[in-house]
């Protein structure tokens, strides 16, 4: 897990980490931190929700739908609150965005 804290801007000068549960529909985001415990973390990782990867919010609310690794995943808000994301543009994380992903970026 990289040492990125939302309150430590010197590590991430431009981006602020936010919980995934509060992101709007259409947001394309980068995962910076997982705060879920062991089992839940393993389930998230196995589906592609892991630090450094990108995801896209397809439906907000509880539960929400995200697209990650080319497939849709339903996620309860409680678990989404443990996934910290920032809005680093796709180019900065040296990964191409999904062609069909909405390009709107979250504020």
């Amino acid at each position: 897990m990289p040492p990125t804290e939302p309150s430590e801007p010197r590590l991430l000068p431009l981006q602020v980490a936010m919980p995934l549960s509060r992101q709007p529909c259409g947001a394309s985001l980068r995962i910076v931190r997982l705060e879920a415990d062991g089992d839940d973390c393993a389930r998230l990782n196995a589906l592609g929700v892991c630090v450094g990867r990108r995801l896209c919010v397809l439906r907000s609310g509880d539960p929400m739908i995200i697209r990650v690794v080319g497939a849709r995943v339903g996620l309860s808000a409680r678990l989404a609150a443990a996934v910290w994301v920032d809005s680093t543009p796709a180019a900065a994380s040296h990964e191409a965005p999904h062609p069909a992903a909405p390009v709107r970026t979250a504020v």
């Binding site: 592609g48 892991c50 630090v51 450094g52 990867r53 690794v69 849709r72 069909a100």
Partner: peptide, 27 residues
């Protein structure tokens, strides 16, 4: 870093090298 992340990155490269076309067409 995250070993899962590296593996997913590998999967993405393997997919983009071997698949042509809109991968989301089916979606």
């Amino acid at each position: 870093g995250c070993r899962h992340s590296a593996r997913f990155a590998w999967a993405e490269r393997a997919r983009s090298a071997s698949v042509r076309g809109d991968v989301h067409a089916h979606g």
